[in-house]
Design a protein around this nucleic acid. Structure first.
Lengths: 217, 217
DNA sequence: GTCTATAGCCAGATAGAC
DNA sequence: GTCTATCTGGCTATAGAC
């Protein structure tokens, strides 16, 4: 899916904060600096999304985070480790977005529609760079042979599982299939939206899915 | 979509033919050797699909085609040129696959179902590496700024346009939306199938779409 | 903990013999 | 047309001063 409204840890804040971050207040023990690691992960998430995994260099990430290249290796041993941290941050953001929807809506159909309403706010970004989660999954899935590449599949598995629970709560015996169908529809629309550079594709598909969910009650 | 049955120019034949290809028979004029360019494009299509654009090196392609690295530059000036040639080969293969369906089936709904029947033969490959066309679109769309990256959007636009004509022939006023919906559903299912490494996802979605097309008549 | 400098490797691209 | 050898630059990762 995508980073939600409360996406502090992934994309929204990445480009900002170019300061050098010296002179942090003491009292937090010999920790790893005030949010430098977080800034690196946020910058990495944005660069990976906009440029793709292979095209993004550690120098790109360090520069976007306002941190010298060599210092990156104090926080992450390899590039694969940074990617894994980005995946974890995305997974956490997805979980908290879904948790927020869950807390705010009692009706499962309303929850599913709330998900698409949230995603609708990112259509322009998706039209330019694709869904941050879907594209990451697709790129990493090719290299999942043996070693190296982290597993990004939770980024689609978490929303599928959540949607399945909603459909099950609606009394659908085919909840799993419906969940896969709805997440696939979103991912496919996101792909076409970015391939065709047309946010209207995703808008129309999202509206259609909302109507479809209503038709299931 | 994918390369069809008659995919000689794209993926199926790539890994074969490691010979050095000296001693070609004369009589074809000062052409560029018997199919060396074609072999390069076929090898490139396979490597781009399996490894992704950025991870694939010209040395990979040359090796897969059984051609020395330096010779690649006799046929293609840059890596971007090879990618463009791969896109053209894919587009040609898609066109000829759809043309074959068009010629073999008169009923538009039957044609649409024939498309999914053809695609069904590649589910295992898609589960491992994703849809060759969709993943290429997604990777190249990120870098479409200004210069460099060729445009892969015909790879989704051609099937959408074709599906639109079929839905229009079925008398549907919303033919364009239905076409986008059906291609998006396939692409999304392909993405989930490769992310989850489960060909059954694509199988189920394809069956569901075939039933859905029948329901439209 | 932070940062500069650089090692070591491998990519895309070129030169030029055959 | 074909192929070997190589240039140049940029990448990941490390060494080691501060």
């Amino acid at each position: 899916m995508t980073n939600s409204d409360r996406t502090t840890s992934t994309e929204a804040s990445a480009a900002a904060a170019p300061g050098k971050e010296h002179g942090r207040e003491p009292g937090r023990g010999p920790g790893r600096g005030p949010g430098k690691r977080e800034r690196l992960v946020a910058a990495a998430a944005q660069m990976l999304h906009q440029q793709g995994v292979e095209a993004t260099t550690l120098a790109d990430i360090a520069k976007a985070a306002g941190i010298p290249l060599g210092n990156v290796y104090y926080y992450f041993k390899t590039k694969a480790d940074i990617i894994a941290a980005v995946i974890e941050a995305h997974a956490a953001a997805i979980g908290s977005m879904l948790g927020g929807i869950q807390a705010g809506q009692a009706d499962p159909a309303a929850r599913l529609k709330a998900l698409f309403a949230t995603l609708a706010g990112e259509n322009e970004m998706v039209a330019r760079y694709g869904c941050p989660h879907g594209t990451l999954c697709q790129e990493l899935a090719k290299h999942a042979d043996g070693a190296g590449a982290p597993d990004a599949s939770p980024l689609v598995r978490i929303p599928i599982d959540w949607a399945e629970r909603q459909f099950a709560a609606m009394g659908r015996a085919d909840a799993r299939d419906l969940a896969i169908q709805v997440i696939a529809a979103y991912q496919g629309a996101a792909l076409l939206t970015s391939a065709l550079r047309d946010p209207a594709v995703l808008e129309r598909e999202s509206r259609r899915m909302a109507a479809w969910i209503d038709s299931l009650r």
